Lab assay of single mutants.
Amino acid sequence: GKMTGIVKWFNADKGFGFITPDDGSKDVFVHFSAIQNDGYKSSDEGQKVSFTIESGAKGPAAGNVTSL
């Protein structure tokens, strides 16, 4: 299901970062391709987002990331 969290950091040059879930669980990796914004796929530190957890090649990753 959908979770909410805060972007801990995001490196636009490398195209990835981490989200800290609101439920206190482990930080989740986020790749720019998962960000659902139109246009520039980046996110700012401290941005509140909703997301799903997908199982990626390197473990859990955020999917369907949407700014709230």
Results as ranks from 00 to 15, higher is better:
5 G>E: 02
55 S>F: 15
31 H>V: 04
11 N>R: 06
65 V>W: 01
3 M>K: 11
58 K>C: 14
39 G>L: 12
29 F>E: 01
8 K>H: 06
53 I>P: 01
43 S>C: 15
47 Q>K: 10
66 T>Y: 07
21 P>Y: 06
55 S>V: 14
51 F>W: 00
29 F>P: 00
14 K>N: 05
30 V>H: 02
31 H>D: 04
50 S>R: 06
26 K>E: 11
11 N>M: 02
6 I>E: 05
3 M>Y: 12
53 I>V: 10
20 T>Q: 10
8 K>G: 04
28 V>Y: 03
39 G>M: 11
58 K>H: 12
26 K>P: 14
23 D>S: 06
24 G>H: 06
45 E>D: 09
54 E>G: 06
15 G>N: 04
26 K>D: 11
46 G>I: 09
20 T>A: 10
51 F>S: 02
16 F>R: 00
43 S>D: 07
1 G>N: 13
50 S>V: 08
50 S>L: 08
19 I>Q: 00
41 K>W: 15
39 G>D: 11
25 S>N: 06
63 G>Y: 14
49 V>T: 01
1 G>K: 13
33 S>L: 08
55 S>M: 15
65 V>D: 03
64 N>P: 02
43 S>Y: 15
60 P>Y: 09
12 A>L: 10
53 I>T: 04
20 T>V: 11
19 I>M: 00
62 A>C: 06
7 V>M: 12
68 L>S: 07
8 K>Q: 04
48 K>S: 07
17 G>M: 05
50 S>Y: 08
59 G>S: 05
28 V>G: 00
18 F>C: 11
41 K>G: 12
16 F>I: 06
5 G>S: 01
27 D>I: 05
61 A>I: 15
54 E>H: 14
35 I>W: 15
44 D>N: 15
19 I>R: 00
62 A>V: 03
7 V>D: 04
13 D>V: 13
45 E>T: 15
56 G>I: 04
23 D>P: 01
40 Y>F: 14
26 K>H: 09
5 G>H: 02
32 F>H: 11
60 P>M: 09
37 N>H: 12
27 D>H: 05
49 V>Y: 04
64 N>H: 09
67 S>K: 14
21 P>D: 02
26 K>L: 08
13 D>Q: 13
34 A>D: 07
38 D>I: 13
55 S>I: 15
59 G>W: 08
59 G>D: 03
38 D>S: 14
62 A>R: 01
21 P>K: 00
17 G>D: 01
11 N>H: 07
31 H>T: 05
18 F>Q: 02
13 D>T: 13
55 S>T: 13
44 D>L: 15
34 A>E: 08
14 K>V: 08
1 G>A: 11
10 F>Y: 09
16 F>N: 00
1 G>S: 11
15 G>W: 03
44 D>M: 15
22 D>E: 06
17 G>C: 08
3 M>G: 04
24 G>T: 02
12 A>M: 11
33 S>Q: 06
26 K>A: 13
20 T>R: 13
40 Y>D: 09
63 G>E: 08
13 D>E: 14
12 A>N: 09
64 N>A: 07
42 S>P: 11
39 G>K: 09
55 S>K: 13
40 Y>I: 12
60 P>C: 09
60 P>E: 07
62 A>W: 03
8 K>F: 06
32 F>M: 10
68 L>E: 07
41 K>H: 11
53 I>N: 02
42 S>E: 09
38 D>T: 12
47 Q>R: 11
26 K>G: 11
47 Q>Y: 11
54 E>L: 13
45 E>I: 15
22 D>I: 05
17 G>H: 01
47 Q>A: 12
31 H>Y: 07
